[in-house]
Nucleic acid binder design. Structure first.
Length: 868
RNA sequence: GCCGGGAUGGCGGAAUUGGUAGACGCGCCGGACUCAAAAUCCGGUGCUGGAGACAGUGUGAGGGUUCGAGUCCCUCUCCCGGCACCA
C-alpha cells in the first residue's frame, strides 16, 4: 500500500474500475426495489460551479447509499442545452451557440467524470439535439389538437434600437442592456399552453406529494392561487365608431364583492378599449397611455412602483346602486390579468385608498367592525379585514357578514344577468413563444392562404440550423432563407416557417421521462418510463421551487392525458438544495448596462464590522458591491471547483461540500475549511495503512472498558449517522466519520486483547459509512484491507445492540432549570430512586440550603430538575 | 410590494424535535518534534469576573407560555430565494 495519500492515482484507478465494470449501468430488475435518483441537469454554461458540485454530490450520496442498501438505482445526467447565455456568448465571441454549447458540454462532462459520480452515462441527453426536441414539437402539436396549446397576443419588452425582444434579465432600469434605449411594451402573437386547465388538479395533487418540502408545496399552492370571487359588469352606453364598446359592459372581478357598495371609481388598464376610446378626445389620457408603454412587465416592479392614473372623463353605471362611477386609467392594472379592469373601493383596499388620497377621489365606508372607528385620514389594518366586519351604508345588505353579503350580492347580480360567483386562479397560461434563435423551433408554417398550419408529424423534427451567429439585433433565423422557406402542408403553396422557438422550460419539463425510457427514435417515451418513474428522489436548487417544478408537473399530466405514461406526478420526493452564494461586484457601462466582475478580480475594503464597504477592480477603477447572491454565469461570481479538485482531489471536494452545511441551507461560499477535510482523508488513509499491518483476530467475549468504550462510540455514532442519513442531513454524517476515526485512532495505542478486532470492525463500518461521500478513497482502502469484494456491493452497516449496551448512564441535575451537576445511575433506576439520588447530591444540597424542594421533575435517561 | 425561507462563538455549523447550547471541523493560543520552517502530533479555546474551584451571562431585537425555550406563541429588524422572457 502507498504510504502517502495520493488522490489523483486513487481516484483515476477507482473511476477506471467502475467504468470497466459498468458499475452504474441501470437495468430493469424485478428482484429489487427501484430507486430513480435525479439531480436537475445543468445548463452548460462553461464550467461547473460549486452549486453543481453540491447538487450532484447530494444526488450521488443518495444514489450510492441506496445502492448499498439493495436498491436498483438509476442516476442519469444530461444537458439543459438551449438558452440565452449561448446567444450572449455568440454575440461576444462570434461563435455559433451550438459550437459553444457542445464545447461546454465536453468540458463539463470531463469535470463531472472527475468527481466520480455514479452516473449511467449511456443515458446522456442534450436538449439541443433534434432527436430530443423532436418530441417537444410532437407533444406541442398534440396539445394544439387538444386545445391545450393556443395562440394569442403576449406582451414583450421591445428594444426600439436593436429592433429585438428582450428578456426581463436584459432590461436594466427600464432600458435595453446593450443599447441603453428606453424599453417599450409591445403586443405580439405567441403560443400559450393551457396550464390553467390543470389548475385544480395541480393544486389538489400537492396532497399526493408527502415527500416534498412543505415550503415548496405552500409556494406552489400560493402561486396557483385559487380564489373565490364575483365577476360582474358595470354598464354604459359608450360608443366608438357607432358601436357600443364591449356591448356596453365593463367587466371586473373581485374577491371582495361585499364591499361593492363602497365602489367610488373603476380603474382600467392602459390597453383597455375604454382607455383607447378616451384617448381619442383627451390628450391627457393619450399621454398617460403613452407613458404606460414604458412601465415594466415584471410583477415585482409593478408592485413597488408609484401607482398613477388619469381620469378618462367617462362614467359607467354601478349595477346595484345605479350611481355614475368615474373610469380612471391606472398604471397598476394589467390588460393581461383578468378583465383588464378593476373596481376600486378606497375604504377597504389599501392600494385603492392610497390612490384615492393621491387624486382626491371619494372614500366611502361600506364595512364596519365593532369597537373600531373609521376615518379617511389614514389607512388602518382592519379596513381590509374580511373576517370580522359587517356591511354598512350598503342598503339592503347592511348587517351582513362577508359570506352572507357576497352570496346575496352575487345572487342579485345574477338575477340582472350582470354577474355571478366565479372561481379565479392567480396562475396564468404558460406563454412558450420566444423570439430567439437558440431554442426548439415551434413546428408551425405560415401560409398566406391557410394561415398558421401545424407541421405534419412525418416532417418532424423541424431542425434548427446550428451554424447561425446571433448579433443581438433580432432572430438570425429571419435571414436564413433555407430554414424560412417551405411549402404549405395544406395547399402546397410557398410558405414561411415560424421563427419563434420554445421557452427552455419546455425542454426541462420532461427530460426525466426520456432518461427513463429506451431513447427510441419513433416514440417520445416507451414502457420503461413506467418502470422507473416517478423519480424517487429529485434534487435541485430551491430557485426552481415554482416554475420548473410546476411546468414539469403540468407536462406530466398532459402526457398522462394523452396516454403516454401511467403516472400523475413526476417527482415523488424532492430535496431542495440551498443556493451557494458568493459576493457580486458590478459596474455600470456607459450605455446603462451592467458589467460584472469576478470576486477574484476585485479588492475590497471592509468596515469595522467586517462588512464590505467599498471595492476596486484590479484595473484600479471603483466597482459597486451588490451584496451576495446565487453563483451564476451572468454575474461572474461562480467558483470553479477545478482548482479544488486538482489540488486536493475529488473526495476532498465532495467531503468538504457535504461537511460545510446541511443540503437545504443557503451556503455562503468560503473555502477556508477545505484543508480540514483534506487532513481528515489523509488521516483516514494513514490509519488504514497502519491498521493493514495488524490482523483482526477474533472479538473477545468481554472487552476491557477502554475498548468497550471505543466500540460503543463507533456504534453509537453509526446509529446517529444512519438517523441523519434518513433526514438527508449529510454534514453530520461527515462529522460522524471524523468522530469514528478519532475514536478508532485510540486503538492503535492500545495493546489489550481485542484492540485489533475493535479497530477492524470499526474501520470497516467507517469505510462503508463514508463511501457514498468519498467513494474513491474508501474503494481503495476497502480493497487494500481485504474486507471482501467491492465496497459498492458491501452491506450497509447497522449498529449492534451488544456494542451499545452499558450498565450505567449519566444524568444531568438541574435546580430551577439551571445546570448544577451530574450523576451516574444504573440504567434501569426508577424515578423515585433518581429523585433520591438527586436530592442527596451535594450541588442540590448547596442550593437547597436546608430548605425543601417544591417539585422534582425526572426525565428518564436525561435529567432531573429540582424546583425550589 | 406579495409568496417562501433564514439568523446560534472569530468562521462553517451541531443540539435525537420542549430537556446538559456550542458536537464535528476551521481559525486562534500554548506545547512536542526540528538547526529552522513546513507537515504531523498533544493540550486549550463562547463572553465577563476569578490564580482556581466556581459564579454570572449567552442562540438577530423586544415581549410571552413553561419546572425548563435555540426549539412553541406575538411584535419587529436584517439577509437570501421566487415573482411568470436568466436557468
Amino acid at each position: 500500500m502507498q504510504q502517502d495519500y495520493q488522490p489523483k492515482d486513487i481516484e483515476a484507478a477507482a473511476q477506471q474500475h467502475w467504468e470497466q465494470a459498468q458499475a452504474f449501468r441501470a437495468k430493469k430488475d424485478a428482484g429489487k426495489p427501484k430507486y430513480y435518483c435525479l439531480s436537475m441537469f445543468p445548463y452548460p454554461s462553461g464550467k461547473l460551479h460549486m452549486g453543481h458540485v453540491r447538487n450532484y454530490t447530494i444526488g450521488d450520496v443518495l444514489a450510492r447509499w441506496h445502492k448499498m442498501r439493495g436498491y436498483n438505482v438509476l442516476q442519469p445526467m444530461g444537458w439543459d442545452a438551449f438558452g440565452l447565455p449561448a446567444e450572449n456568448a455568440a454575440i461576444q465571441n462570434k461563435v455559433p451557440p451550438a459550437a459553444w454549447t457542445y464545447d461546454n458540454i465536453a468540458y463539463m462532462k470531463k469535470q463531472l467524470k472527475s468527481l466520480g459520480f455514479a452516473i449511467d452515462w449511456s443515458r446522456e441527453l442534450a436538449t439541443c439535439k433534434p432527436d430530443y426536441y423532436k418530441w417537444n414539437q410532437w407533444l406541442f402539436l398534440r396539445m394544439l389538437e387538444k386545445g391545450i396549446a393556443y395562440k394569442k397576443t403576449q406582451v414583450v419588452n421591445w428594444d426600439p434600437v436593436d429592433q429585438t425582444v428582450l428578456a426581463n434579465e436584459q432590461v436594466i432600469d427600464g432600458r435595453g442592456w446593450r443599447t441603453g434605449a428606453l424599453v417599450e411594451k409591445r403586443e405580439i402573437p405567441g403560443y400559450y399552453l393551457g396550464i390553467t386547465q390543470y389548475a385544480e388538479e395541480l393544486l389538489a395533487d400537492l396532497d399526493k406529494l408527502p415527500g416534498w418540502p412543505e415550503r415548496v408545496k405552500t409556494m406552489q399552492a400560493n402561486w396557483i392561487g385559487k380564489s373565490h370571487g364575483v365577476r360582474f359588469a358595470f354598464t354604459h352606453d359608450i360608443k366608438d365608431s357607432g358601436a357600443l364598446i364591449n356591448d356596453g359592459r365593463l367587466w371586473v372581478y373581485t374577491t371582495r364583492a361585499d364591499t361593492i357598495m363602497g365602489v367610488t371609481f373603476v380603474a382600467v388598464a392602459a390597453e383597455h378599449p375604454l382607455a383607447a376610446h378616451a384617448a381619442k378626445s383627451n390628450p391627457q389620457v393619450a399621454a398617460f397611455i403613452e407613458k404606460c408603454k414604458h412601465t415594466s412587465v415584471m410583477e415585482a416592479d409593478l408592485a413597488t412602483m408609484e401607482k398613477e392614473g388619469v381620469d378618462t372623463g367617462l362614467k359607467v353605471t354601478h349595477p346595484l346602486t345605479g350611481d355614475q362611477v368615474p373610469v380612471w386609467v391606472g398604471n397598476y392594472v394589467l390588460m393581461s390579468y383578468g378583465e383588464g379592469a378593476v373596481m376600486a373601493v378606497p375604504a377597504h383596499d389599501e392600494r385603492d385608498f392610497g390612490f384615492a388620497k393621491k387624486y382626491g377621489l371619494p372614500i366611502k365606508q361600506s364595512v364596519s367592525m365593532a369597537g373600531k372607528t373609521f376615518s379617511t385620514d389614514a389607512w388602518q389594518e382592519w379596513y381590509g379585514d374580511k373576517e370580522h366586519g359587517v356591511c354598512v351604508n350598503s342598503d339592503k345588505y347592511n348587517g351582513l357578514n362577508y359570506e352572507q353579503a357576497v352570496g346575496a350580492i352575487a345572487d342579485h347580480l345574477k338575477s340582472m344577468d350582470l354577474g355571478d360567483k366565479q372561481v379565479q386562479w392567480r396562475l396564468r397560461d404558460w406563454g412558450v413563444s420566444r423570439q430567439r434563435y437558440w431554442g426548439c423551433p415551434i413546428p408551425i408554417i405560415h401560409c398566406d392562404t391557410c394561415g398558421s398550419v401545424p407541421v405534419p408529424d412525418q416532417d418532424l423534427p423541424v431542425v434548427l440550423p446550428e451554424d447561425c451567429v446571433p448579433d443581438g439585433s433580432g432572430n438570425p433565423l429571419h435571414k436564413r432563407e433555407d430554414f424560412l422557406n417551405c411549402t404549405c402542408p395544406k395547399c402546397g403553396k410557398p410558405a414561411k416557417r415560424e421563427t419563434d422557438t420554445m421557452d427552455t422550460f419546455v425542454d426541462s419539463s420532461w427530460y426525466y421521462a426520456r432518461y427513463a425510457s429506451g431513447f427510441k427514435s419513433d416514440a417520445m417515451v416507451d414502457e420503461d418510463t413506467n418502470y422507473w418513474m416517478p423519480v424517487d428522489q429529485y434534487i435541485g436548487g430551491i430557485e426552481h421551487a415554482i416554475l420548473h417544478l410546476l411546468y414539469s408537473r403540468f407536462w406530466t399530466k398532459v402526457m398522462r392525458t394523452l396516454g403516454l405514461v401511467n403516472y400523475d406526478e413526476p417527482f415523488a420526493n424532492l430535496l431542495t438544495q440551498g443556493m451557494v452564494l458568493n459576493h457580486i461586484f458590478s459596474r455600470r457601462t456607459d450605455k446603462g448596462g451592467i458589467h460584472y466582475f469576478a470576486p477574484d478580480d476585485v479588492i475590497v475594503t471592509r468596515d469595522e464590522a467586517g462588512r464590505i464597504a467599498s471595492a476596486r477592480a484590479v484595473d484600479g477603477g471603483a466597482v459597486d458591491y451588490q451584496g451576495i447572491g446565487t453563483m451564476s454565469k451572468s454575474k461572474l461570481n461562480g467558483v470553479d471547483p477545478q482548482s479544488l479538485i486538482e489540488q486536493y482531489g475529488a473526495d476532498t471536494a465532495r467531503f468538504f461540500m457535504m461537511f460545510a452545511s446541511p443540503p437545504e441551507q443557503t451556503l455562503e461560499w468560503a473555502d477556508s475549511g477545505v484543508e480540514g477535510s483534506h487532513r481528515f482523508l489523509k488521516r483516514l488513509w494513514a490509519f488504514g495503512h497502519a491498521l493493514s499491518a495488524k490482523s483482526a483476530g477474533s472479538m473477545p467475549g468481554k472487552l476491557p472498558n477502554s475498548l468497550a468504550d471505543i466500540r460503543r462510540e463507533v456504534h453509537l455514532t453509526l446509529k446517529q449517522a444512519n438517523y441523519d442519513l434518513g433526514k438527508q442531513q449529510f454534514n453530520t454524517v461527515a462529522s460522524a466519520g471524523m468522530k469514528m476515526l478519532n475514536a478508532l485512532e485510540k486503538t492503535l495505542k492500545d495493546a489489550e486483547d481485542g484492540h485489533a478486532a475493535v479497530a477492524h470492525e470499526g474501520f470497516s463500518i467507517l469505510l462503508r459509512l463514508l463511501s457514498p461521500i468519498c467513494p474513491h478513497i474508501t474503494h481503495a482502502l476497502w480493497h487494500e484491507l481485504g474486507y471482501g469484494g467491492d465496497i459498492l456491493a458491501a452491506m450497509w452497516p447497522e449498529p449492534l445492540a451488544a456494542a451499545l449496551e452499558q450498565d450505567e448512564i449519566e444524568l444531568v441535575i438541574q435546580v430551577n432549570g439551571k445546570l448544577r451537576g451530574s450523576l451516574r445511575a444504573p440504567k434501569d433506576a426508577d424515578k423515585a430512586a433518581l429523585e433520591q439520588l438527586a436530592l442527596a447530591h451535594e450541588a442540590v444540597q448547596k442550593q437547597l440550603a436546608g430548605g425543601a424542594a417544591k417539585k422534582v421533575i425526572v426525565v428518564p435517561g436525561r435529567l432531573i430538575n429540582v424546583v425550589l
